[in-house]
Design a protein around this nucleic acid. Sequence first.
DNA 1: GAAAAATACATCGCGCTCGATTTAATCGAC
DNA 2: GTCGATTAAATCGAGCGCGATGTATTTTTC
Lengths: 167, 167
Amino acid sequence: MPESHKPETAPQPPHESAGVSTLLDTIGLSDFLCFAIYSTSHAFNRVYKPLLDELGLTYPQYLVMVALWAENDQTVGGLGAKIFLESSTLTPLLKRLEALKYVSRRRDSGDERVVRVSLTDEGRALRQRAHDVPRCVLEASGLSETQLRRLQAEITQLRENLHKAGV
Amino acid sequence: MPESHKPETAPQPPHESAGVSTLLDTIGLSDFLCFAIYSTSHAFNRVYKPLLDELGLTYPQYLVMVALWAENDQTVGGLGAKIFLESSTLTPLLKRLEALKYVSRRRDSGDERVVRVSLTDEGRALRQRAHDVPRCVLEASGLSETQLRRLQAEITQLRENLHKAGV
DNA sequence: GAAAAATACATCGCGCTCGATTTAATCGAC
DNA sequence: GTCGATTAAATCGAGCGCGATGTATTTTTC
């Protein structure tokens, strides 16, 4: 717990030529990568919302559907590992998808601890109705597919780093 | 509402040489930029949590404190414009910061509609205790400051694009 | 200067997210 | 086979986030 003794509060002009530690003292919100990610995540959500409203889905529900369209019949834990969500988040979310008739939830007959999540016919059919969603979002992003892929790869790498650090 | 009639569900191998529209049919979660952002946002949160727990703050509360350290005495609306949050989110959050004695909330005497949020002495003092947080997170990110700044700028641009699209 | 419109914040309901804990089933050691 | 440890989901409480709505104050319009 370092106890430096420097002046506080007043909006200081940024020191362009300062070293890292000094920079970290004088930065504002806009300098935080985490804030850029945080706020962009919300911005994506706002773009998705009107598109997903038509399907009756929220964004995390949509992610689950995408995962199931790619591979049907997954466990709660398996979905959580892919989407990085805990069962405490997924269980109620999946119950809502079940209430919407898009998925079914059944205990695995071989291992009664496991719950298997599968697409219903309506869940499968939804894929067609959701067909244009990624294209609409791609357009809203204003990025070329090349830019997008590079950015996607860099951020995914960043996520891996953070996971490793979070041991 | 496009009504194509193609086979569904089974995990198809990605067509490396396919055009955009076909690509969008066969992608999985890992191909979505929005998912990379979404999951990395959560990953950041997990890195921040143990650091902020010591200060009694959540991540969005920390953002408000950062904003106030940069410029004291801001309105609810002004904070919301910077952090991209609605009053429905900020009002209860600010009340919690007030309960923690880090900020005070007062109606503006000139315009009684406005609530001004200011740092308390404890809120100012917290800045010292939070001094190492950005450095810890920077280290966890595993990025050089150069990489970090470039990525931060690109994502901020992306956020601006999404805001424009979301008219 | 009174009525209408706009502004700033607060309230409410719903869903997401997590950590901590609980419950049930399976696996391992013996 | 039984006890203990492990595993998989579910449950609970707290906080975030938003859209819709409400309330009080200000500004605008006439």
